[in-house]
Design a binder for these strands. Structure first.
Lengths: 142, 142
DNA sequence: TTAATTGCAAACATTTTGCAGGTTC
DNA sequence: GAACCTGCAAAATGTTTGCAATTAA
């Protein structure tokens, strides 16, 4: 299909990574991809923007939002919908799930092997499954 | 704990239902509860408002939002976070999961018995599990 | 009559959009 | 040079808040 698994390990080849997802690599897109793939953390659009600006990158807010949307649409990253107030983006697109800390807003991965679903129910008539998200909401103790 | 299972079947006793969740029953709250528990459907705040106004109820937008938030905080209903654009509220608080149709925005219940999770992973140190949500995103065929 | 609730409008936060100017192939 | 991308500011959502007026215990 593509060589993403290999490329994933080599953030230096961001240009090739973007291209393999049919995304024209531009200065801003490479900077945004760099933040995501070097940190390999879940981030909101605003966090990406802050990070970039702190590092001296010159990217506008609109471009960050539009670019993250594009990355997600192309399958390079994944949207994580856990907080009604903002979308998180996950550079890890392999099958996995999430802990979401309601107190801190922190997201943590759960490996697919650590959380198996027993036989998925059939999707409603006329529909096909597009993805399965499991979110375990946690709260700080006491 | 409470008699919600019984009360649930009797939307006429909405006053008692609210009281059993430590919610002072007011005209507006009863109207909002009526919409949710008579339809027994997932609804956004805006849908609740529309429904109410169409039925001639006089409730303000702020009150609908605040009331749904209160209901959820008290455990009478459940928030469903699947769409970055809006929160859905679910009058069914028993353990269950959801199909979410990306094309139509429709939410459908999945009975807990039809989707078992094989041994939940332990929550991160210092945290306790507050809830588990499984969302199966589906798309209309072809 | 005191506390709680409501409604309105304004405030907020996140995200999207229109469009002029720049960049890329 | 044609198509595409970026930045800015303005607009569009959905939701929250401040506060005066109203309602409930």
């Amino acid at each position: 299909m593509n060589t993403s698994e290999t490329i994933r390990q080599i953030p230096e080849d961001l240009t090739g990574l973007l291209q393999s997802y049919r995304i024209q690599p531009t200065v801003q897109r490479l900077q945004i991809a760099a933040v995501l793939f070097q940190r390999r953390e879940h981030m909101s659009a605003d966090q990406v923007l802050d990070n970039l600006q702190a590092a001296g990158g010159r990217v506008s807010k609109a471009t960050v939002y539009n670019t993250l949307g594009l990355f997600a649409r192309r399958g390079l990253i994944r949207e994580v919908i856990v907080d009604p107030a903002r979308v998180y983006y996950d550079p890890n697109t392999s099958e996995h799930h999430h802990f979401y800390n309601l107190d801190t807003g922190e997201l943590m991965d759960i490996d697919a092997d650590d959380l198996r679903l027993q036989a998925l129910p059939k999707p409603p008539k006329g529909t096909v499954t597009a993805g399965v998200d499991v979110i375990i909401r946690v709260r700080n103790e006491s």
